[in-house]
Amino acid sequence: MRPAGIVATFLGVGLLRPAPGTWGSAAAIPVAYFLHLNGGFPALAVGTLIAFICGLGATALYTEGLEDPDPSRVVIDEVVGMWIALWPLSFGLWHAGLPTDIFPYPGWIGGFLMFRLFDIWKPWPVSWADRLHTPLGVMLDDVIAGLMAAVVVSAAAFVSHTYLMG
């Protein structure tokens, strides 16, 4: 496999069946944890930016000449979106000065579920980006779904920590 294919499929994870987008999203979580563990939120944020830039280029090269501008095996976009969905969790832990080895499961499970919901359901503006049918659209719809999931994760954490945990 060429380098663009390795990046676009996230080391071949996008070739798994069924539901390669779900596999890509799930594979993104331990890598996000590794980044968080080794540098907190700044590492995850920089990693997300690098993955977006590399993913955009790899998607452009990988899909060049294909009829489908967004083949299901391209999952680097899901990785980027999933990492954005985990930003509130990573930022909150980092900002509070908590040890980097903490990555509580309610946060990443909620992020995963909300990201997959928005990525599959494609409410506006996710659907707008999806209809671009360009490499930028491929990446951008998942960025937006990740941002929407991050808002839900943040709201859930606020409610949990303010009202449920006292």
Rank of each mutant, 00 (worst) to 15 (best):
M139C: 12
A150L: 01
W128M: 13
L93W: 10
T162M: 06
G166V: 06
S72Q: 07
I53S: 04
G12Y: 04
F158D: 06
W94C: 11
T162Y: 06
R116S: 05
P88E: 07
G65T: 09
T48W: 05
L117D: 07
G12H: 07
D68H: 09
M1I: 08
L89I: 10
T134Y: 10
T22G: 05
L98A: 13
L132M: 14
V13C: 09
G111E: 00
R73Q: 15
G39E: 08
D130C: 04
W124I: 04
N38Q: 10
L56P: 13
G92Q: 09
L61P: 00
S72L: 04
T59A: 12
T100Q: 06
A60K: 12
S90H: 05
F52R: 11
D70S: 13
V138M: 10
L11R: 05
V126C: 11
W23M: 03
P42D: 04
F158M: 14
W94A: 12
A157M: 13
G97W: 10
G107M: 05
S25N: 04
L37T: 08
R131A: 15
P99S: 12
K122Y: 14
L49H: 00
D68F: 12
A19N: 09
I50Q: 08
S72V: 05
L132I: 07
P3S: 03
A8R: 08
V153L: 10
P99R: 13
T100R: 14
A45H: 05
P104N: 06
L86V: 10
S160W: 15
G47T: 06
V79S: 05
L56Q: 06
P88K: 02
H133F: 13
A26W: 13
A156C: 13
A45F: 14
D70F: 08
G47H: 05
L35D: 02
P71W: 09
V138I: 14
